[in-house]
Computed example of a mutant assay.
Amino acid sequence: MENYTLSVTDEIEPAFEQVIAGGLNRFNDEMTGYNDRQPLAVIVRDAVTEAPLGGILGRSSLGLLFLELFYLPPALRGNCLGSTLLATFEQQGRERGCRCAVLYTINFQAPAFYARYGWRAFGEIPCAPPGTSRIFMSKEL
């Protein structure tokens, strides 16, 4: 048996993340025979300062589009900007060859918003506080 130690931390060092992600990515590449993973961001910027105001972060991998984070400040909501961001994100996924997309949202966040654009819930898991749940959704692209 090799010598090693275990540790627990809430600070993820870039070197640690690189070891885990790099190892898993190499394994996936060997198993599938290809590497198509790419990060994807659709960003809303201030027209004057170009500072980021909100947007979508995600990635594509193995023909699947992952929507990981989506945020718009309240002042930018309600004017179809969110719809435009989502459509742009989905189109970028199609252009990358993705056939399906996945995300999770929280029941007090935006499940109805996603449903209006063809996303379907495929799972729900209760979480804290009571009455709150994470809703997992997918969409054919």
Rank of each mutant, 00 (worst) to 15 (best):
Q92R: 06
R116I: 00
R59H: 14
L72S: 07
K139I: 02
E13S: 13
E95W: 06
N25A: 15
I106G: 05
E30K: 12
V42F: 05
L24K: 07
N79A: 11
W119S: 00
P39N: 12
V42L: 02
I125N: 05
V19K: 10
D29H: 14
E95P: 01
P111H: 08
L24C: 04
Y71W: 14
Y34V: 07
L53G: 04
G118E: 08
L85G: 00
W119H: 04
E124K: 07
A21F: 12
L65C: 06
R99C: 08
F16V: 12
L76T: 02
S83R: 09
R59C: 09
N107E: 05
A121M: 11
Q92A: 11
R26F: 06
R59T: 04
A115E: 08
M137Q: 05
Y104E: 08
F66K: 06
S7M: 10
T88G: 03
A21I: 09
Y4Q: 13
L40Q: 06
V19A: 12
E2L: 14
R26E: 11
C127V: 14
N25V: 07
G55A: 10
F89T: 00
P126W: 05
T105G: 00
C80H: 15
A112M: 08
L103D: 01
E90R: 00
R134G: 02
P74S: 11
L76F: 08
R116Y: 04
A51I: 14
G54Q: 05
N28L: 03
N25D: 09
I12D: 11
R134I: 10
E124A: 13
L53N: 02
G63I: 02
P14T: 09
D10M: 10
L6H: 03
Q109H: 11
A75H: 15
Y117R: 14
N35H: 12
E68I: 06
S61K: 13
E50D: 15
G93Q: 01
Y34P: 03
T9M: 07
Y104A: 02
L67I: 07
R37K: 13
P73W: 09
E17M: 12
L86D: 00
G82S: 00
Q38E: 13
T32I: 02
L24T: 04
C100M: 14
C80Y: 13
R134K: 15
I56S: 03
M137W: 01
G63R: 01
Q109V: 05
F113K: 06
A21W: 09
I56H: 04
Y104C: 01
E30R: 14
L53P: 03
A115Q: 06
S133T: 10
G63N: 02
G131I: 07
G54I: 05
E11S: 09
M31C: 13
G93I: 01
P129Y: 07
L6V: 11
Y71D: 07
N107H: 04
S60V: 13
D36T: 08
S60T: 13
